[in-house]
């Protein structure tokens, strides 16, 4: 098992596969073991990119390959349309890597996805990986080790750092999900935590948060009320100044809202231990899992 992607041969396409990032990561995903069946770039049908067949439309790709999931590398102005095209073609899992998509578009696209029963992950994130099964996104293949820890994060490279630390400690992961650093994301942290709770292979949960918004506070509440598995938290931005956007669109303290302190307090109150460095995470996990 694992969450969201729980089968080995899930057929996956890459939208924007002829771009620099799209073609590179299509190969990397294949090396991880993902069943990449092709890609889509309008106007480039009948060609190949990185060894994969390219189609003009998602519909055509689905008809020819039976694709069930898509990873999107399309530039921000065109990405919302690419998501809607995937939804309309019956794709049920859509991972959006693109950054700088206006949140107005995400609000509307997410409502549409919900209406049609598709799950979105991202945007502005590294995607997800179920270790031993498939990776849909851009996380480095080398950081993973199969194990029993579920990881959910708002970050990219910080997630790699933490997952790598967990793997090197001798523990390993079931599924790792980067939900994205934007204000509006397809799948929220609290949903992922609930999925980990239901996954029999996941024995402990690591949640990596950062300043801005209230996702960590809401997730802490969910964990307190309905999650029995042990959880460890990490919050980035303890020393971030208020009013400054720290790289991610969503990482900003507005007034006195969205501070690291508020999030750490919420986690502590929910009985979740909060690590102050990535290295502490596996130490705490080992004490909790035992």
């Amino acid at each position: 098992m694992a969450i969201i992607v729980d089968e080995k041969n899930l057929p996956v396409i890459v939208q924007g596969i002829t771009g620099h990032q799209g073609s590179f990561h299509a190969q990397q995903m294949k090396l991880f073991g993902t069943n990449i069946v092709g890609g889509v770039t309008p106007g480039r049908g009948q060609t190949r990119s990185a060894g994969f067949p390219v189609f003009d439309s998602v519909k055509e790709a689905v008809e020819n390959t039976g694709a069930k999931a898509s990873v999107i590398f399309v530039p921000a102005p065109y990405a919302p349309d690419a998501v809607i095209e995937a939804i309309d073609s019956g794709i049920k899992l859509i991972v959006i890597i693109t950054e700088h998509i206006p949140f107005h578009d995400m609000v509307k696209v997410k409502l549409y996805a919900r209406l049609k029963g598709s799950r979105l992950i991202g945007p502005n994130g590294p995607g997800m990986a179920s270790v031993g099964l498939a990776k849909l996104g851009i996380m480095p293949n080398s950081i993973f080790r199969q194990g029993s820890v579920g990881v959910v994060s708002r970050s990219g490279t910080l997630t790699y750092e933490i997952v790598n630390t967990i793997s090197e400690s001798g523990l390993g992961e079931t599924t790792v999900i980067g939900i994205g650093g934007d204000q509006v994301v397809g799948t929220k942290m609290q949903e992922v935590v609930q999925l980990f709770e239901r996954d029999p292979e996941t024995k402990a949960i690591v949640m990596v948060g950062e300043i801005g918004g209230t996702a960590e506070e809401e997730t802490a509440e969910i964990i307190k009320n309905s999650v029995s598995k042990p959880a460890v938290g990490f919050i980035a931005g303890r020393y971030a100044p208020p009013g400054k956007r720290m790289g991610h669109a969503g990482a900003i303290i507005t007034g006195n809202k969205g501070t690291a302190e508020s999030k750490i307090n919420a986690l502590n109150e929910a009985g979740i231990r909060v690590a102050s460095t990535p290295n502490e995470i596996p130490e705490i996990l080992k004490q909790l899992i035992r």
Binding site: S153, S155, G237, R238, A240, M246, G247, H248, S276
Partner: peptide, 10 residues
């Protein structure tokens, strides 16, 4: 990365 930056600062 934004998260790694913030964690480094912390």
């Amino acid at each position: 990365g934004a998260g790694l930056n913030m964690a480094t600062i912390d």
